[in-house]
Amino acid sequence: MRLDTVFDISGSALKSQMMRMEVISANLANINATSTPEGGPYRRRDVVFQSRPLPAELFSDHLAFHDNRLQGVEVNQVVTDSSPFNRRYEPHHPHAGPDGYVLYPNVNVVVEMVNMMGAARAYEASMAVILSTKSMIAKTLEIGR
């Protein structure tokens, strides 16, 4: 049983999904923020995932049973969602425009909740891989006992 490879892969997934959770949390926290320091309502943010190869130092020259396609994952960038803001007719709102409409963040609570569940499930799945690998290593140490 190889010790380091799986922990690198699954560890990267835990970090990435956690970052995704943080972005989702920020979206939900700012769902009603009609004004931001940059001006205008809060714009929804999202993460972009990308595969990343394993670090070279994990592999010795005599590597057998290794495949270059093994990948970890990382958050490549955090992007802003350019879809249009939500509009609500609130003429008495301090941020209302001349037509009486207020621009609200382009955050949809249902979409964010679904994404949050997806991120949580993916996080737990990689955690399961780590725990399973840990038990395989423990069993390996029992060879000959």
Partner: peptide
């Protein structure tokens, strides 16, 4: 780090034993 597979190492020890 030349041998990354733990079970290979343990088996070498067992065979020597």
């Amino acid at each position: 780090g030349r041998e990354t597979n733990l079970h290979h190492t343990l088996l070498s020890l067992e065979k020597a034993d």
